[in-house]
Amino acid sequence: MIEVKNIHKSFDGEEILKGIDFVFETGKTNLIIGESGSGKSVLLKCMLGLFKPEKGTIEYDGSAYYSFTDVEQRELRKEVGMLFQGGALFDSMTVEENVMFPLRMFTTHRRRELKSRVAEVLKRVNLEGSENKYPAEISGGMQKRVAIARAIVNKPKYLFCDEPNSGLDPKTATIIDNLIQELTRENNITTVIITHDMNSVLEIGENIAFLKDGVLAWQGDKSKIFKTDDETVTDFVYSSDLFKKVRNAQLKGH
């Protein structure tokens, strides 16, 4: 479980996060949604320790991250998996080397053991046979799956995903969403996902934080978000024509 309490963060005098409180639950897919510029990525980077908030605390299973020593912070980061928006795969490494990278850096296992673990994880994300390909040789969806494999290879307790569906077709996006949800449940990890994609909210929104102008404007799950009358939320959720039509149909009782 990750708990953020009263997080404030500013850049050049402009306050981006204005006191966010939220609990990201273990074994669930926790979504942070909101418009561009609402502070989602800043909140994620504060949770990852890439930005230090001016005020507030971030607790990983009850321990405040910013009270940790450097060594403790590094140890915690070994338990964190991160899926970046563009995948952030290392171009000069093959798929296998990319996935093996965290293991090589932080474990003392023999190469044969590392290869076996990598094969296991690649199989889990349906990428057997792609070991020797370079990131430039595979599709965007496959790159995302490699990035997921790299994020989970070290068996993390916490998984962060920054817009995992961006640039993917709807079918591949659904596959990625379901994969993340399955991995979250299988391994009982705390997963935090930033997304704009309302389909993802529908698919895997088990615990949702809606940010608006740096404030937590709404929280709940996927069953509640489509029923709420809160205008701030409905403006965002029903901004696309498709969802507007779904909403109208619901209101008409179809």
């Binding site: 990852l48 980061r77 991160m82 563009g86 952030a88 850096m105």
Partner: peptide, 17 residues
């Protein structure tokens, strides 16, 4: 620079490297 643009450096930092 390409590693910076494609967040590969952030990936290293997040891993604690």
């Amino acid at each position: 620079g390409s590693m910076r643009v494609t967040e590969q450096i952030d990936a290293l930092e997040v891993m604690g490297i």
